[in-house]
Design a protein around this nucleic acid. Structure first.
Lengths: 142, 142
DNA sequence: CCTCGCTGCAACAGTTTCTGTTACACCCTG
DNA sequence: CAGGGTGTAACAGAAACTGTTGCAGCGAGG
């Protein structure tokens, strides 16, 4: 159960907010979003809270409270969503520092950091090329 | 401690095998590799076992046992290493199936799979562009 | 002003994954 | 055939994520 579904949950929530708004619902509550994702309302609030801190959604308190997008779905990329909810890199270096008396142990960390940085850059470029509007459009055609 | 350092450990082991071979050591034992990585010999045997099943290293049993590369370090890409030791994708879909009565819940999984597949493809292309020889060269220049 | 619905957040349990450790059977070179 | 090293299973500990409960706080509307 430990695999990262945060980007999935957050994107699902955003797409649902976008569709509901288009259908005339001003806001959705975390319960309503949780019903579509089939998850817990607290999980959804945690995720939407991250998105709020990143400026991607807005929240309304009091009676008639709920969430809505803070900007058009065409202007929210999955990279922004990823950075908002999950900042963990795909690869980690050594847990304990390698043996510095070995030439490989001494120099391998910067060498691997370079490779990992390029991999992460490629990943980010791909995520930046997809928006919530793209996902929603593809979602509705299937 | 749960972050994935498997690709790091395996690449470190391969680079060390390559350098030791160049220096005249026919094979290295898992203890010798563990001394450079500063990890446990069993961890190294697990990692090298994965690489052996992928055909990237060879093992010799009996007295004078140990490990060596099965091919030139220029012909081992980090993508092969990654596939040998760690087949887990960076993003997961929903843990429990979303609500199929919601239009978003119904269609979002294939939509996200498409995006995630493109991201993974970009990652794999980048990993395929770096070899153990590249990493070793960069390691020794720092 | 007060009520009520929803958010915000802390605390905790359960699951999974990964590293590390011990133990032991097995293999094969010398 | 002896001994060093591999192969593998079993288990402990740490970390991350999801899920759950509980409760304080906010504010729109009566």
């Amino acid at each position: 159960m430990a695999a990262n579904s945060r980007l999935t949950v957050a994107t699902h929530a955003l797409a649902w907010l976008a569709l509901a708004h288009r259908r005339g619902h001003e806001v959705l509550t975390s319960e309503q979003v949780a019903a579509s994702v089939k998850s817990n309302a607290v999980i959804i609030r945690r995720s939407l809270g991250d998105l709020r801190r990143a400026g991607l959604v807005e929240v309304r308190h009091g009676a008639g409270a709920g969430w809505r997008l803070a900007r058009a779905p065409e202007e929210i990329t999955l990279l922004q969503v990823h950075d908002a909810v999950d900042a963990r890199p795909p690869f980690a270096l050594h847990h304990s520092e390698p043996n510095l008396e070995c030439p490989v142990g001494r120099g391998i960390r910067p060498a691997l950091s370079g490779v990992y940085g390029r991999v992460e850059g490629a990943m980010r470029r791909e995520l930046a090329g997809a928006t919530v509007a793209d996902v929603l459009r593809e979602t509705l055609t299937s």
